[in-house]
């Protein structure tokens, strides 16, 4: 027999070390407060001789640790919706600022770029950054006004900027609905989602060429849906925020209206073109909103 107290201690040490590694899924502060207690319970629950964490316990530690790290605390569904819509608006603004900046940089490379055009783009970026700062600071009404001015001011040309219109409608709704005196701040960290959305949009255009030519191209939007649904297990605000972006993408591919001042559309395009993308993006938005709502309701329960 190789068993005995020393063997049991050795098994336990190995198991404890492995559980400690898994516990790194939790934030440092949580581990400092509760880590030893959770480890004690894990070791209490482990059968003698076990050296490897069980699959069930490992999955639970990783899921709960990730939720503790990134997920919101318990709150009413209305609060989750309000925060999620703010995040959606913030990312839409971030996305538009990023694309305007890229456009401006490309324009700088063109020899003899008119200063007036550069000023227009610069003004657009300034409006956008001011609106984002106001939203991060919880100034919803100011953000709504700045976004409205950005749409109305002669700093956009081409088609109507539907990302901004969507953000404006969301913010206007929030300004009217939110009567609480306290300001609701929105973390600027959510802006890291913006480059991802731009990348997904770029990939979508590359794959579809603007139109669906075969059933295989439908895979892309469904991959998008799947990727963001994964976020549902951690944070219900994510699918609602992504649904805002999806609505903006749906409007972009469907409605072709010139922007308010100096705008223009591609010749030959009718103002409304109902394409397969319209239905796909619409369906994705509905599914994401439903998932977000159900998860938000669940979050309210103890």
């Amino acid at each position: 027999m190789s068993g005995g107290p020393s063997k049991r201690l050795s098994d336990e040490t190995v198991l404890a070390r492995r559980y400690r590694a898994l516990l790194r899924a939790y934030p440092k502060a949580w581990r400092a407060e509760r880590g030893d207690e959770l480890l004690g319970t894990l070791l209490d629950a482990a059968e003698p001789g076990r050296q490897r964490p069980s699959l069930r316990e490992s999955a639970s530690i990783l899921t709960q640790g990730t939720r503790e790290r990134f997920g919101p605390r318990r709150r009413a569904p209305g609060e989750v919706w309000s925060e999620a819509l703010r995040i959606g608006a913030l990312v839409l603004l971030g996305q538009t600022v990023a694309s305007t900046l890229l456009f401006m940089l490309e324009f700088l490379d063109v020899p003899g770029s008119p200063a007036a055009e550069l000023t227009r783009y610069g003004a657009g970026v300034a409006f956008g950054i001011a609106a984002m700062v106001a939203l991060v600071l919880g100034q919803t009404v100011v953000t709504t006004a700045l976004t409205g001015l950005w749409i109305a001011a002669p700093v956009m040309h081409g088609e109507m900027p539907w990302q901004l219109v969507t953000a404006f409608l969301i913010l206007a709704g929030l300004s009217l609905a939110d009567r609480t005196p306290s300001r609701r701040r929105t973390s600027a960290v959510w802006l890291v989602v913006a480059p991802l959305v731009l990348l997904l949009g770029f990939g979508f255009n590359q794959m579809t060429g603007g139109y669906f030519s075969s059933a295989s191209t439908l895979l892309y939007p469904f991959a998008l849906l799947l990727a963001f649904t994964a976020g549902v297990t951690v944070d219900p605000r994510l699918p609602i925020a992504v649904a805002c972006l999806t609505v903006a993408m749906m409007l972009n591919v469907t409605l072709h209206v010139p922007s308010l001042f100096g705008g223009a559309t591609i010749e030959g395009l009718s103002p409304m073109e109902l394409r397969p993308q319209t239905a796909v993006f619409g369906a994705i938005a509905v599914v994401l909103l439903t998932i977000g709502h159900l998860r938000a309701r669940r979050l309210a329960r103890i």
Binding site: S60, I61, R74
Partner: peptide, 16 residues
Amino acid sequence: LAAGSLYAVLDRLADA
């Protein structure tokens, strides 16, 4: 309950 899930439940109950 897995141990990780138990502590999530206890956190929610303690918060409330």
